[in-house]
Design a protein around this nucleic acid. Structure first.
Lengths: 137, 137
DNA sequence: CAGTATCCAACTAGATACTG
DNA sequence: CAGTATCTAGTTGGATACTG
């Protein structure tokens, strides 16, 4: 009994943060990093520093607002660095921090998974829709 | 020249889907799976089938609407199965498909990353905010 | 138990125009 | 070049009430 309790306590301490809990701050962090722009930006920075306009071109269709906003959040959270070279015109380079690199490894899997399983998902949707349309009558 | 072109073509074929492109359907899929409820649900199903109310309790604070909606999307995309046992009251079990299991492996890393690096992110934010408040004057 | 249906406040994010 | 500022259409998701 005492053993059980001690084990439980140890386990609780190790898992101080638990995203299943609504009040846990990791719930918010998980929400932030679960974002397509975050994923694409971190991936776009994997081969070294990139300039603002390079990122803008690479992430086709992203608005200036979302690009700047996402980069600022990533910078504040310690995932990317922002280096300004005060030339004329000014040059700004974004790069991954070690923390950002550690997250990039994971979100890249997400991007690769989507690209690898798109066809599989298409098939699943077609099957689901076919099954559910036949229930209509 | 011919070699170059052939290599380009091969590369283009391998990367038929590219989430960097706005019009690519994987951009949408990436957006769908980049969702905290998707992550938490897939993780909650990792140890086997779970009933609707079990999931509701495990994902503290999720509304019925989001739970049902997310489960339906996951089912349609072929990531989870929904099994109805027509008892009274009815019993419904959700479980991961092989495709869902493959995605779960990745999103679990996301959840673990958030839980493991929360403190690091807190520190980064404090540093960023301190640096930027001192710029105010 | 496992949902469905509806309403709506709040947040999101694109478009647009402007700047050091 | 690398942003900022503003406006708003559209979406999201929680709350609430109801059902087989």
């Amino acid at each position: 009994m005492a053993t059980q309790t001690a084990a439980d306590r140890r386990s609780a301490e190790r898992d101080a943060y638990d995203a299943y809990l609504a009040a846990c701050p990791t719930r918010n962090l998980l929400d932030r990093i679960s974002d397509k722009w975050v994923t694409l930006l971190l991936c776009a920075l994997q081969d070294g520093p990139r300039r603002y306009n390079e990122l803008s071109r690479k992430l086709a269709g992203i608005s200036q607002k979302m690009l700047t906003q996402t980069l600022r959040t990533l910078e504040r959270d310690g995932l990317v660095t922002r280096e300004v070279t005060p030339s004329v015109p000014v040059r700004v380079d974004y790069a991954l921090t070690p923390l950002g690199t550690s997250l990039r490894a994971t979100v890249e899997q997400l991007k690769l998974w989507a690209e690898a399983n798109m066809d599989h998902v298409y098939l699943a949707r077609a099957g689901y829709d076919a099954r559910n349309e036949s229930h209509q009558d």
